[in-house]
Nucleic acid binder design. Structure first.
Lengths: 176, 176
DNA sequence: TGCGTGTTTCTCTTCAGACAGAACAATCAG
DNA sequence: CTGATTGTTCTGTCTGAAGAGAAACACGCA
């Protein structure tokens, strides 16, 4: 069984806590943290022991992480037991998570807003500002969505430049 | 008491649900949704009745929203009763929320990572890749943080241009 | 057939959060 | 000063949803 150094423990606990605050199951986040710093594939059994949680729990959590696309099964030759490893690149990881949350939350919300706007416009009793507010909220989501989508396409090294290029960028954007 | 049209109801419920998934208390999110579409200041009493929740609950939730800086008290002349209104601009709202979450979650995490990196480097038994992984995660947070900070400074109309300027932007970033 | 491994389902527990109500504070009117 | 109005902050209680664990189930391999 893998023994955790104090640094690793601290990190795993904190990461679980952070996940919780952003709507990610605590166990799922902890397992991800473990796989990330382990830097080598671990079996479900090892994970369960190391974090002292039930194997069934590990099983479902891992399935979820695979669903997010940030953990993948690794089959070792000569071993029947399945091992799992996390993406090594945090940018890549963030990218996948953002992608999924767009699909699961942003897009449905945009659709729902469209419905509400429709029905608000059809209803003559409805104050007109309701539709307006809903529309500007929808615009925000659509635009924010596009920003994230645009960002995802950039290579991760470009981000560093983006920050440094702040002033140039401002010129570019302010110019017509 | 304010009567909610079907569109308003649907929106408020969904918004509460979304808040929940992103780590915001459901009541808090619902109240914010209500104030946002109401488009006029409401008293705590009206809110409690409209959403049928306890007044004490409304009181604490509103205090939280004020803490986020996205709802503010409005004092009407000749009225002792306090009213509340939400920011009308969704971009502004998003901005404030991102700002607060940076303070409350991203920055503490960066600090904790720094501690873990320190202790991982001090500990000779620790695998060196642990420190490396923690470092690249910290870099992600610092950079992401900077990206958001940079974005916050841009006027909201600029965002639209940012999207359209995609190709130019790519040139700019790819160039040395 | 039996064993190792992984998944699904079920039950039980736990915990956040919503409520009611009380106590308290602040403010204003009379 | 007294009482009424309004708001905040506690308390204890309760409920529903999420999560943890255990057991049953499914699968593949020897």
């Amino acid at each position: 069984m893998l023994t955790l150094t104090p640094a690793m423990q601290k990190f795993i606990l904190h990461w679980g806590e952070m996940g919780d605050r952003w709507g990610v199951n605590r166990s799922v986040a902890q397992i991800h943290a473990l796989l990330y710093i382990a830097g080598q594939p671990l079996s479900a059994e090892e994970i369960a022991e190391t974090l002292s949680m039930a194997r069934s729990n590990v099983s479902t959590s891992i399935r979820e992480l695979i669903g997010w696309g940030i953990v993948r099964p690794v089959l070792k030759v000569g071993e029947r037991k399945e091992h799992f490893e996390a993406l090594a690149d945090p940018w890549e990881t963030l990218d996948r998570v953002l992608q999924k949350r767009r699909e699961r939350e942003i897009e449905p919300t945009i659709r729902l807003l469209a419905e509400c706007i429709e029905s608000a416009k059809d209803n003559p009793k409805e104050d007109k500002h309701v539709a307006m507010r809903l529309e500007s909220l929808r615009d925000l989501l659509i635009q924010g969505d596009a920003v994230v989508a645009a960002m995802r396409k950039l290579p991760s090294e470009a981000i560093g430049r983006l920050i440094k290029a702040g002033s140039k960028l401002k010129d570019l954007l302010t110019a017509r």
